[in-house]
Write a protein that binds this DNA or RNA. Structure first.
Lengths: 239, 239
DNA sequence: AGTAACTGTGTATGCCATGAACAGTGTATG
DNA sequence: CATACACTGTTCATGGCATACACAGTTACT
């Protein structure tokens, strides 16, 4: 593995695979990458994504922000490692029933989003390249191996379900976090403006009791995933 | 409309509906909200979301950043107006064929994402509450009126397709933007690490020619939307 | 023993969102 | 018609951020 190649990898990739430069001189590092990543996760869990700054992470470790740059070359690199650690490893494989496998896959991802609500705020600029994230893909591909679909199609399904998990998690979090009095003020404000301006159907939805009152329910989650699974099934049966 | 209610609305909502406080004394404002929003959109188009700052927007108008706060109470409020303007109005309604209507809806949204690639970076923390964004929902509900589904189900479909558009647009943008030599370095790096470590299927995908080389194609877009539409169709037929 | 590599700290730069004080302007009121 | 006040845009200021750089202390290899 050339150093040239290492340097042109996406940030964090080499570190995530354990490619740490082995220091041979100088004082022992006082901390480990794992400790730093754990501190970052603890910080985000405690105060949210907006508070995930280099100073705040460093403070948890009792060092200065600049010291972090002895371990990492940028915040972007750290976030790659944080994503890898926080999404964690995929669930145990489910075999023999692609529908069950995909359901477990999606629900487990959603569960991780509930544990770390800031996870979907992490910028995703690249295809997965770290062990756990590729493990999730491997897990999905294995789970759908019995579907008879091509590898391309199964990959497309993985992308589809992954996107669904992210947008659903985002919705779940944000809708459930909106202050009830704001929701109430909003319907009061919108009501008179929607009627008679061509928003008849939206008006019906908003005046319906489901809107905002209860946030998203289990049934709403079920609905979206159910549609996607049915859509995949239709493709499988068509072949 | 009580002022009390106005004040507890989500930021930007009142302004987006034209609820501007009418000044009766003092110098005329040198600018309009529309000009400011246009400047913000031009700035984001030119230099991306990260460069969408109050100073950079103000500079385009020839004023200081602080002057913007005479028109807006926060950047968050501005971003709501920017989203409203940049997503723009929905396409003309398509009637009689829900599948065609939803396809047009999704593809038009995707087209807006291509015109303003930073659009999916705008933080979405609330349900839509502005005229255009609610117009998109109205348009979707109208397009699926002939499907026979309940309003709740159709709303669920709208959420589903909306989420798909966002994740697809994000993927399209990011994958197509990744530097080819980085992609090449990555497969070279991952290759030896995937084999023999249980990533057999992922290894096959990555060594396949489709991975990264060409980015996402029209066919990949088609695939995801096709699955979702089939999934909705399966629900309709089951009733 | 000495040198060089490595660690953490202090200092500094140039961004950012936003608050506060201020000077100029023009309208509504006396 | 004069004046006061509401409203404009500017300057100055604060506290936060990522990150570069120079330095002092530490430790392994020569």
């Amino acid at each position: 593995m050339d150093d040239v190649e290492i340097e042109s990898l996406p940030p964090g990739t080499a570190l995530a695979w354990g490619h740490a430069p082995a220091p041979r001189r100088g004082p022992k590092p006082g901390y480990s990458l794992e400790q730093i990543v754990d501190a970052a996760i603890a910080q985000a869990d405690a105060e949210g994504y907006a508070a995930l700054s280099m100073p705040s992470i460093a403070k948890r470790l009792g060092i200065t922000a600049n010291a972090l740059y002895r371990y990492l070359s940028s915040k972007e690199e750290l976030l790659v490692l944080v994503a890898e650690a926080a999404w964690g490893p995929p669930p145990d494989p489910v075999s023999g029933d692609w529908r069950a496998a995909v359901t477990v896959w999606a629900r487990t991802l959603l569960e991780r989003c509930r544990r770390h609500p800031w996870l979907i705020d992490l910028p995703v600029r690249r295809a997965p390249s770290t062990p756990n994230l590729l493990g999730w893909l491997e897990n999905f591909l294995a789970g759908m191996a019995d579907s008879g679909l091509s590898v391309q199609d199964v990959t497309g399904c993985a992308v589809l379900v992954d996107g669904w998990v992210r947008s659903t998690a985002s919705l779940l979090r944000d809708v459930n976090a909106s202050p009830p009095d704001q929701v109430r003020a909003l319907s009061a404000f919108l009501g008179p403006r929607l009627e008679g301006r061509g928003y008849t159907r939206v008006a019906a939805v908003i005046s319906g009791e489901a809107y905002g009152e209860e946030g998203m329910e289990e049934a709403d989650v079920e609905f979206g995933l159910g549609r996607i699974l049915d859509g995949i099934e239709a493709l499988i049966e068509r072949r």
